[in-house]
């Protein structure tokens, strides 16, 4: 846990530095803008500039993350003293399966659309991760997309992307819309 806490604090500190750098950027249409000219409290007598808010907040975030690092290094924080593992082997497996599954789900949406990806994700998740009977997995994997189609596409007129499966839905639109 101690290493994980330290690494996370370093990552946050680096991200804060990046945000500070980014906050100081002038607008893209003004190539002459000096970096960090927009973070002052009274820029050109027009009050705080566009970078004022994010810059100083990023600095506060940087200071806090350094504080976390220091406490961690000195073993003051409870996590730095804890003997728990950040993610044990089972936790890692769970994270890889569920987190990876979710990313695959989104990738699949980009290819076969919501109504192609949803049944695959639900069936795989419920049948193989949840170890529920196949008929239950199948019922949910079919039921949820059907409900979503009528709720979003038909009732709310929010058309969810279909990607390559678009042609299959044209007859349905003819009937219900």
């Amino acid at each position: 846990m101690r290493t994980a806490e330290f690494v996370a604090a370093v990552a946050i500190a680096l991200f804060s530095l990046y945000l500070m750098w980014k906050s100081g950027e002038g607008p893209s249409w003004d190539p002459d803008a000096v970096r960090f000219a927009n973070i002052g409290i009274n820029v050109n007598n027009e009050g705080p500039g566009s970078g004022f808010w994010p810059f100083w907040l990023s600095l506060a975030m940087l200071v806090s993350s350094v504080a976390i690092m220091v406490r961690c290094a000195l073993r003051i924080s409870p996590l730095a003293r804890s003997r728990d593992v950040y993610l044990d082997s089972q936790g890692k497996k769970m994270f890889a399966l569920v987190g990876g599954g979710l990313l695959l789900f989104l990738l699949l949406i980009e290819i076969v659309g919501f109504y192609g990806a949803m049944p695959v994700f639900l069936f795989a998740y419920i049948r193989f991760l949840g170890k529920h009977p196949w008929w239950l997995a199948l019922a949910i994997a079919v039921g949820v997309p059907v409900f979503c189609f009528f709720f979003f596409d038909i009732a709310m007129r929010i058309v969810l992307p279909k990607q390559y499966l678009e042609p299959l839905f044209l007859p349905l639109y003819e009937i219900f819309l």
């Binding site: 789900f105 529920h132 979503c148 992307p161």
Partner: peptide, 22 residues
């Protein structure tokens, strides 16, 4: 495991429905 799968799906669909972009 069923509830979480439904929540994952609803989260993804809900986000899309709210802003309509991937």
């Amino acid at each position: 495991s069923i509830l979480s799968s439904l929540i994952f799906v609803l989260s993804v669909v809900g986000t899309y429905a709210a802003y309509q972009n991937m």
